[in-house]
Design a protein around this nucleic acid. Structure first.
Length: 477
RNA sequence: CGAGGUGUGGCGCAGUUGGUAGCGCACUAGUUUUGGGAACUAGAUGCCGCAGGUUCGAGCCCUGUCACCUCGACCA
């Protein structure tokens, strides 16, 4: 009974995971398709989730000393060209503006796919002395990448994101910043989204175009595929040199500053959907749920029910984001509806409860029904919201553990990749050739070199030569 | 960019050898209901993706075209 599938409108995960995902996105009213391919409409319920994510992350950025700025959305072609690796990485997927009205532009403009070049160009103008450092900037905006295949939140041609760009006097300081922001991402993912992540470094092959080092948080989705959920890059002084950003240090010498950038996107919403969702729809971690508690009156024509529901609503408004649904839909309809939308807690209040001075609270994560005295509601609800977060985290962590495999040989790797979805941990010699070969033979890419290393063996899973790095491998979104 | 698939009320679909365009859900009004997607009654809703063609007659056949979805390759 408790596990019976009650929302018939959603394709089950087992039947077709991709369809399940799309169903949830549409039916939970997170997004709608627009008339431009790959450009999705983020509906109020979906956008409210993004606003909560923004608020949480922005607080963390502010706490770590960052300021928000806004850069133009257009980049002149000549500016984009200045850093060779960078332009090679992004050129295939940029959208170009060639005309203003009917007039052809002197120089075409690309719609930003990312803003390193714009920030560098600006930094060049505002940084002249060591006293001008560090610059700790962040911007919330949308970027455009002309993707060929698109999916809501996971890959769209325009997407919302946050990009931090910082300049530092020393490499050491810039490296610390890179690490600090990766830790912020990991903390937000784990504590607020209840989503376990693996922190680590990308291999050279997977590195951001133009970066010296790229760090990542990798999450494991329900179907065993990996999702890169946030990245933090250390640029060294490569961009500074390419863009001629230069300042005078204490010894009156000209120096190029060291730079970082870091970003997360609306893809995080996709990550949350595919981490916590089930066959009844979305399951939202309370911290980002637009509605944390929904109050459903039962037999609301009976005397006192609506009044009591209203009372509960007023009480809980003080401690949570609560909604009272006193529409004339049937209770069953409402149960299904708010489950589909992932609301963490539902409160049922009917004549029976009123007689007993209590109500029924139902958890979305495990469907547990809890009878709570009305007088205790105000203290119980925050506790239960916390319990839902913890429950989600434990469940996700356990699933990840069950879907993470250690392998020592190429045969094992191949068999594992073919038969069992999930993370594969294996040693690597550091050779690009082996990385390419594993992709070709096993269909897996390197996810990251985790900070937390385990020595699985002494030899590379691919070539058998000496290896001292343990990597996470997997199929990725 | 490769391979598949789908276009018919708002949504999901049916539509036989070519012969008056239908069903379910949703919507509107009313009544009874309400502890897991309520029931009845009465309504409203169509350039059958678009353009040509064949035919007395096309949702259906032919040609073209556009759009979207899914899976690959690439990416956050």
């Amino acid at each position: 009974m408790a596990n019976e599938k009650m929302v018939k409108a959603i394709t089950s995960m087992e039947e077709d995971f991709a369809k399940w995902y799309t169903d949830v996105c549409i039916k939970a009213e997170l997004v709608d398709y627009s008339s431009v391919k790959g450009c999705m409409i983020i509906r109020p319920y979906g956008y409210a989730i993004w606003e909560n994510i923004q608020r949480i992350m922005d607080d963390h950025f502010k706490q770590t000393g960052h300021e928000n700025v806004y850069m133009p959305m257009f980049i002149p072609e000549s500016l984009l060209q200045k850093e060779k690796d960078h332009v090679e990485g992004f050129a295939p997927e940029v959208a170009w503006v060639t005309h203003g009205g009917d007039e052809k532009l002197e120089e075409r403009l690309c719609v930003r796919p990312t803003s390193e070049t714009l920030f560098c160009d600006h930094f060049k103008n505002i940084v002249h002395s060591y006293r001008d450092l560090p610059k700790l900037y962040n911007q919330w905006c949308s970027v455009v990448r002309w993707e060929k295949t698109t999916r809501p939140f996971l890959r769209s041609r325009e997407f919302l994101w946050q990009e931090g760009h910082t300049l530092h006097a020393t490499a050491e300081e810039a490296k610390l910043e890179t690490e600090q922001m990766l830790n912020v991402y990991a903390k937000v993912a784990e504590e607020y989204f209840a989503m376990p992540v693996v922190k680590g470094q990308k291999t050279e092959k997977e590195r951001f175009a133009g970066a010296e080092a790229t760090y990542t948080i990798e999450a494991l989705m329900h179907d065993g595929k990996a999702l890169q959920s946030g990245t933090s890059h250390y640029f060294g002084d490569g961009f500074s040199r390419a863009f001629d950003v230069c300042y005078t240090d204490k010894d009156n010498k000209p120096v190029h500053p060291f730079q970082t950038s870091w970003g997360t996107t609306t893809r995080l919403i996709g990550a949350v959907i595919m981490t916590h969702g089930d066959d009844n729809g979305l399951v939202l971690p309370p911290a980002i749920a637009p509605i944390q508690v929904v109050v459903v009156p039962i037999a609301s024509h009976k005397p006192g029910v609506n009044e009591k529901a209203e009372e509960i609503y007023e009480t809980l408004k003080k401690v949570s984001r609560v909604k009272l649904d006193n529409s004339d839909q049937s209770p069953g309809w409402k149960f299904a509806e708010y489950e589909m939308k992932g609301v963490p807690l539902r409160i049922e209040i009917g004549p029976r409860d009123i007689e007993n001075g209590c109500c029924v609270v139902v958890r979305r994560d495990n469907r547990e029904k809890i009878v709570v005295a009305l007088s205790e509601l105000e203290t119980k609800i925050p506790e239960l919201l916390k319990a839902v977060r913890d429950g989600l985290y434990e469940k996700a962590l356990e699933r990840r553990a069950n879907m993470t495999y250690d392998v020592k040989t190429l045969d094992e790797m191949k068999k594992n990749a073919d038969e069992k979805p999930g993370f594969i941990r294996a040693m690597w010699c550091g050779d690009r050739e082996c990385e390419d070969k594993l992709k070709e033979i096993c269909g897996v890419t390197s996810r990251c070199i985790p900070f937390e290393q385990d020595k699985i063996s002494d030899t590379c899973v691919c070539c058998g030569k000496k290896a001292d790095k343990m990597l996470y491998w997997g199929k990725a979104y």
